[in-house]
Lab assay of single mutants.
Amino acid sequence: MDETGKELVLALYDYQEKSPREVTMKKGDILTLLNSTNKDSWKVEVKITVNGKTYERQGFVPAAYVKKL
């Protein structure tokens, strides 16, 4: 869990989004878990840094590609 009590997951593999509802992640990324009720895909939040500014983006990733921490 992070400092706000949200559950975290670790990306086990790289994943490139295939639709606007998904998010891209790299192996080793730590993501905030938002919903894990679907056995196939979990909703997560990723933090992306562009030019020194951090943005948050929500979307789905394959459940088999992440592990709860």
Rank of each mutant, 00 (worst) to 15 (best):
E22M: 04
D29Q: 14
M1I: 12
V44I: 06
T37Y: 09
T37Q: 11
L69D: 01
E45K: 12
D2L: 14
V66A: 02
K47S: 12
L8W: 14
L33M: 02
K6S: 10
T37V: 09
T49R: 09
K43C: 15
R57Y: 06
Y13T: 08
K18R: 13
M1E: 13
T32Y: 10
S19E: 09
R21N: 15
M1W: 13
G5Y: 13
T24R: 06
D14S: 07
K67P: 02
Q16M: 12
D29R: 03
G52H: 04
V46Q: 12
K47R: 13
R57M: 07
M1A: 13
N51D: 13
S36P: 05
A63V: 05
T54G: 04
V9A: 08
Q58R: 10
T24H: 03
T54L: 09
L34M: 06
G59M: 06
V44A: 00
K27D: 02
R57T: 05
Y55Q: 08
T37S: 14
E56G: 13
V23D: 01
E7P: 10
K68P: 08
K26W: 08
V66T: 02
L69Q: 02
M25N: 01
S36F: 05
V46W: 06
K39V: 10
D40E: 11
E56S: 15
S36G: 10
S19W: 07
T4I: 12
D40N: 11
R57S: 04
A11T: 05
G5L: 12
Q58E: 08
I48S: 06
D29E: 08
V46D: 00
E17M: 12
V9C: 13
A63S: 14
E45Y: 08
L8N: 04
A11P: 01
K18N: 09
P20G: 08
S36R: 07
K47E: 07
W42G: 00
L33E: 00
V23T: 03
L34T: 02
Y15I: 01
L69M: 09
P20F: 08
D29P: 00
S36N: 07
N38F: 08
W42V: 04
Q16N: 13
T4G: 13
F60E: 04
Y65V: 07
V44E: 00
A11H: 03
Y65I: 07
V23C: 07
K67F: 08
V50L: 11
K67V: 14
T4M: 13
V61A: 01
T54I: 12
S19G: 11
A11S: 05
V23F: 11
K53P: 01
T4V: 12
L34S: 01
V50H: 09
R21M: 14
K27E: 04
D2M: 14
I48T: 08
I30H: 02
K39L: 09
K18D: 05
K18E: 08
F60H: 05
E17R: 15
V61S: 01
P20H: 09
K67W: 07
K18C: 11
K6W: 10
G5H: 14
K68H: 07
N38H: 09
E17K: 13
Y13C: 15
T24K: 03
M25T: 02
K26A: 07
E7C: 15
V50C: 12
E17Q: 13
E45Q: 13
Y55L: 09
T54Q: 10
K43Q: 11
G59C: 07
E22P: 06
K47P: 04
E17Y: 04
K27G: 03
V66Q: 02
K53T: 12
I48H: 08
E56K: 15
V9I: 07
G5T: 13
R21Y: 15
Y15N: 01
G59W: 05
K68N: 05
V61H: 01
Y65K: 06
T32H: 08
A63N: 02
T37D: 15
Y15L: 02
N35C: 13
E45I: 14
K68C: 10
V46F: 08
K67T: 12
E45G: 13
K39T: 11
D2Q: 13
P62G: 03
G5C: 15
Y65S: 10
N38C: 11
I30D: 00
T4F: 12
T4S: 13
K26D: 01
F60V: 04
V23M: 07
P20R: 08
K18V: 08
M25L: 10
V66S: 00
T32N: 06
K18F: 05
V66G: 00
V23K: 01
K18S: 10
V46A: 08
E22A: 07
K53Y: 12
S36Q: 09
V66E: 00
G28A: 02
L8E: 06
T24Y: 03
M1Q: 12
K43M: 15
L31C: 05
L10V: 15
V44H: 00
K26H: 10
K26G: 03
L12C: 12
A11C: 13
S19R: 06
E3Q: 14
L8T: 07
N38E: 09
V50W: 08
E3W: 13
L31F: 06
K43H: 10
E45V: 14
A11V: 10
A11M: 03
V50N: 07
D14A: 05
K39H: 10
I30P: 00
K39Q: 11
E17P: 15
Q58V: 13
A63F: 03
L31I: 06
S41W: 15
R57N: 03
K67H: 09
E17I: 05
L8Y: 15
R21T: 13
V23N: 01
E17L: 06
N51L: 08
G52N: 06
A63E: 02
Q58K: 07
D2C: 15
K6E: 09
E7V: 14
Q58D: 04
T32P: 10
T4P: 13
A63W: 03
M25W: 03
S41E: 15
S41Q: 14
E7W: 13
A11K: 03
M25A: 01
E45A: 15
E7M: 12
D14Y: 05
V50I: 14
R21C: 15
